[in-house]
C-alpha cells in the first residue's frame, strides 16, 4: 500500500461502520427488551429514503435527519402494535415488513423523482463534517457509550433487561411490559432509521431502490456477534467496516487475481469472528410474545 494509507483506511472503515452501528444498537435495544428486531432492514431502508427526501424537499440535512427519525418512530409504532400489542409472530412480521418496505420505498422514490428531479441527483455534503468525519460517525460512537451506560448502569436499563430475561417476572415487579416494549421498539426503530439516514445523508448522498442491500441484516449479525452488548456490537460493526475497506485495497494491491476473492474478505472476517466468539446467550425471553397470564 502507498504511503499515507492508514488515515484513508480508517476513514473508509468508519464510513462503512457508521450506518451499521446505529442499526446494531437498535437491535441490541429491542432484543434486550425481549423483541426480535428483524424489521431493522426495512426501517433502515425507509429511514434512508425519508432522510434524502427531507433534504431535497426542505433543503436542510438536519431536517432530513428529523424526518427520518419521525418515519422511524411511526414504523416502530406500527411494528410494536403488531408484534407487542396484538401480539403476532415477531420473526414473520419482521420479514414481511422488510418486503413491504422494499416495495413502498421504491414506489415512493419514483413518485418523488417525478415530482422533483433533484431526488435523483447527489444532495449537498452534510454540514458539520470535519477531516472527513461526518457528524453521524461521532454520534454513533457517543450513542454506543451512552447505550452501554444506560443499559448496564441505570435503573431503567435494568428494567429493560429484565423484560428480555423474563417478561412475567418483570410484570410481577410492576413493569407494564406491553407499553414499555412498545416504547422501546419504537425508539429502536428510530435508531434503525437513523442508520439509514447515516447512509444516504452522511455517506453516499443519494438513494436507489434497496440501497441498504442487507446492511440491516449485517447489523443484526453484529448485535448477535457482540452478545447484545452495545460496545461489542459496535466493535463488530467496525470490524466489518474494516473488512470492506480492506477488500478493495487488497484488490488494488493484488492485481491479476480474481476480484471476488478479495470481495469475500468482510464476510469471511465476520464468519471468523462469529466462530471464535462462540455461542452467546441471548436474552432468555427474546422473541416470545408476551401475553399476560
Amino acid at each position: 500500500m502507498s504511503e499515507g494509507w492508514l488515515a484513508p483506511f480508517l476513514l473508509a472503515t468508519l464510513r462503512a461502520a457508521t450506518p451499521l452501528i446505529f442499526c446494531a444498537l437498535s437491535v441490541v435495544l429491542a432484543e434486550r427488551a425481549g423483541v426480535i428486531h428483524i424489521g431493522v432492514e426495512g426501517v433502515m431502508l425507509a429511514g434512508a429514503l425519508a432522510g434524502l427526501l427531507g433534504v431535497v424537499f426542505w433543503g436542510d440535512a438536519y431536517v432530513g435527519i428529523l424526518f427520518s427519525l419521525l418515519v422511524g418512530l411511526i414504523l416502530g409504532l406500527l411494528l410494536a402494535l403488531i408484534t407487542v400489542y396484538l401480539p403476532s409472530d415477531q420473526v414473520v412480521t419482521g420479514i414481511v415488513f422488510n418486503i413491504f418496505s422494499l416495495g413502498v420505498t421504491s414506489f415512493i422514490f419514483r413518485l418523488a423523482a417525478e415530482k422533483n428531479a433533484a431526488v435523483q441527483a447527489l444532495i449537498p455534503v452534510m454540514p458539520g463534517s470535519v477531516f472527513g468525519l461526518s457528524p453521524f460517525m461521532v454520534l454513533a460512537l457517543v450513542l454506543t457509550v451512552f447505550m452501554w451506560w444506560f443499559m448496564f448502569r441505570t435503573g431503567p436499563g435494568l428494567k429493560i433487561r429484565s423484560m428480555g430475561e423474563d417478561a412475567h417476572a418483570a410484570h410481577a415487579a410492576g413493569i407494564n411490559v406491553v407499553i414499555t416494549r412498545m416504547l422501546i421498539l419504537t425508539a429502536a426503530a428510530a435508531l434503525s432509521a437513523l442508520g439509514g439516514a447515516a447512509l444516504t445523508i452522511g455517506w453516499v448522498r443519494s438513494f436507489t431502490d434497496n440501497i441498504t442491500l442487507g446492511r440491516g441484516f449485517i447489523a443484526l449479525a453484529a448485535a448477535y456477534c457482540g452478545r447484545w452488548n452495545p460496545l461489542l456490537a459496535t466493535a463488530a460493526c467496525i470490524l466489518f467496516g474494516a473488512g470492506e475497506a480492506l477488500a478493495f485495497r487488497a484488490q488494488a494491491a493484488g492485481e491479476g487475481l480474481n476480484p471476488h476473492y478479495f470481495l469475500m474478505i468482510p464476510y469471511l472476517l465476520t464468519l471468523l469472528v462469529v466462530a471464535v466468539a462462540g455461542k452467546g446467550r441471548a436474552p432468555a425471553d427474546v422473541g416470545r410474545p408476551y401475553v399476560r397470564r
Binding site: W5, P8, L199, V204, E244, A252
Partner: peptide
C-alpha cells in the same frame, strides 16, 4: 452493479491512487 456505498469507496480508493 447496485451497491452504491461500495462504488463510492472504490472510487475514493482510485482517487487515493
Amino acid at each position: 452493479w447496485v451497491d452504491v456505498p461500495k462504488h463510492s469507496e472504490v472510487t475514493r480508493l482510485q482517487i487515493e491512487r
